Amino acid sequence: MTGLAPADRPAPARIAADDLRRLAAHIDQVLAEGGRPSVASLAAAIGLPAGEFRRRLEATIGIGPRALLTGRQIAHLRERLLAGDEVTDALYAAGYGSSSRLYERGQAALGMTPGAYRRGGAGVAIGWTTVASPLGLLLVATTAHGVCAVYLGDDEATLRDALEAEFPRATLSRGVARQEWVEAAVAVASGQAGEDVPLDLQGTAFQQRVWRALRSIPRGQTRTYAELATMIGQPTAIRAAARACATNKVSLLVPCHRVVGSNASLTGYRWGMERKRRLIEMERQSSGGLP
Rank of each mutant, 00 (worst) to 15 (best):
M1S: 14
I126C: 08
A109R: 11
Q221F: 12
S262D: 14
Y117R: 07
P198H: 04
D154C: 08
L253V: 07
A43T: 14
S98G: 10
G34S: 05
L69V: 01
E227P: 04
A132I: 03
R9E: 14
L81P: 05
L82K: 09
L91N: 12
A205T: 02
T113W: 04
I61D: 07
T267A: 10
A16E: 14
L135R: 01
A184H: 01
C148E: 03
V210K: 00
E58A: 14
A16F: 07
G123F: 04
R243L: 15
Y117W: 14
A237S: 13
L102G: 03
E281T: 10
T247V: 11
V259F: 03
A157Y: 11
Q192I: 00
E283D: 10
I61G: 10
A67Y: 06
G95T: 07
P10D: 02
L91T: 11
A5L: 15
S133K: 00
H145C: 06
A7V: 12
R219T: 12
A17M: 09
Q179T: 11
A7P: 00
I27N: 07
A241I: 03
A94R: 05
I126L: 12
E58Q: 15
T236C: 01
N248F: 03
F167E: 04
G272D: 06
D19N: 11
L199F: 03
Y103P: 00
L163V: 01
V188A: 02
L110N: 06
E52W: 09
T130V: 15
T204H: 05
R36Q: 07
L57C: 08
G120F: 00
I126R: 04
R54V: 15
A237R: 09
I15G: 01
H145F: 15
R66A: 13
R275Q: 14
E183H: 12
G106S: 10
A170H: 15
V188D: 01
L48T: 07
T143M: 10
L68Q: 09
A246R: 15
S133Q: 00
D161F: 07
E104P: 04
Q202S: 12
V210E: 01
A162I: 06
A59E: 07
A246D: 15
L135V: 03
G220N: 08
S133N: 00
G35T: 07
A244C: 12
G97T: 13
G220M: 08
S190F: 04
W128P: 01
R9S: 09
G136Y: 02
E227H: 06
F53L: 09
L20G: 04
T224L: 10
A45F: 05
F206W: 10
A108S: 10
G47H: 08
Q208S: 11
Q202W: 11
P6L: 12
L81E: 05
R212G: 11
N248G: 09
A108P: 00
Y92C: 00
Y225S: 03
L77W: 08
I126A: 08
A50F: 00
S190K: 04
E180W: 13
R78Q: 15
G261R: 00
T222P: 00
P291S: 09
R277D: 11
A109M: 13
L31S: 10
